[in-house]
């Protein structure tokens, strides 16, 4: 559980500091996503079976998100990223609901997205990608005009500021939703602990069940929003008005 004052275990490599729980959780999330997709994509046929139908439904879903805000000349290059990002964030959001592994004070395996640094890394990727696609499609001049001087040139300072707010809101929205969900789940669990308050375990059981279901829903919605915003930001940078 990622409380703000949580202890963490770190290690140093190449002069950089890494957090063990982030490293382990992220790698596990990535492995789950890869194994899931790998298993689903075996034995592809023209007439799809059950597994292939599931995979194609996800692909159609993320393709639809990209197509809804980008022309196919730009969108087709982003579809793989949208697909991977959606699954990665979805798995990252839901992981901690099922499994959390802690040794001593440190939680080593949890939802990676309960850590703001992880969500900021992903937001940085999205914002950077959107700007990069903008420059590569419109040239630097066109990109600058579309991004910072639109709809009018005097909005330049606001538009520059908007880039930072885009980045921060993208990161903190995801982090806030998932972190709050898991924090409340921990509070409910503690409340239901028989050693604290006696028979509250019964209502706490049902309450935590309800809250887990809601967190699953929130996790899916947040993954969807993240990918949607990726394509919307890209269209803001890369589609000339």
């Amino acid at each position: 559980m990622s409380f703000l004052d949580e202890k963490s275990a770190t290690f140093q490599l190449l002069g950089l500091t890494f957090d063990w729980s982030i490293v382990i959780s992220t790698v596990i999330a990535a492995l789950i996503v890869f194994l899931l997709v790998f298993v689903l994509s075996r034995n592809l046929t023209m007439k799809p079976g059950k597994k292939q139908n599931v995979l194609e439904a996800i692909v159609d879903f993320t393709d639809g998100i990209v197509d809804s805000s980008l022309p196919s000349s730009i969108g087709n290059e982003l579809k793989l990223t949208a697909f991977t990002l959606f699954l990665f964030i979805f798995v990252s959001n839901e992981m901690g609901l099922a499994v959390q592994v802690a040794f001593g004070d440190v939680t080593y395996v949890k939802s990676p997205t309960t850590n703001p640094i992880v969500t900021m890394g992903l937001a940085l990727l999205v914002v950077g990608l959107a700007n990069f696609v903008g420059v590569s499609k419109l040239g630097f001049k066109g990109y600058f005009k579309t991004t910072f001087m639109s709809p009018m040139a005097f909005l330049l300072p606001i538009n520059i500021f908007e880039q930072f707010t885009n980045y921060l809101t993208l990161a903190l929205r995801l982090y806030g939703n998932i972190m709050a969900g898991e924090m409340l789940l921990t509070l409910i669990t503690n409340w239901g602990n028989p050693s604290h308050l006696g028979l509250t375990i019964v209502p706490a059981f049902f309450l935590s069940m309800l809250w887990q279901a809601f967190s699953l829903f929130i996790g899916a919605i947040q993954a969807f929003i993240f990918v949607t915003l990726m394509s919307i930001y890209t269209s803001e940078h890369a589609v000339a008005e």
Binding site: T10, L13, G15, L16, T17, F18, D19, I22, V23, T26, V27, A30, V33, F34, V37, F38, L40, S41, L55, L80, T81, F83, T84, L85, F88, P112, N115, I117, V118, M120, G121, L122, L124, L125
Partner: peptide, 25 residues
């Protein structure tokens, strides 16, 4: 440098995942 290292790690993990999913699936 806690943020930088972890962010780079997340980005790297994502890019590797992107590569393998692109290749295999």
């Amino acid at each position: 440098q806690l943020a930088l290292g972890n962010m780079l790690f997340v980005l790297l993990t994502f890019v590797v995942l992107l590569f393998f999913i692109g290749k295999f699936a």
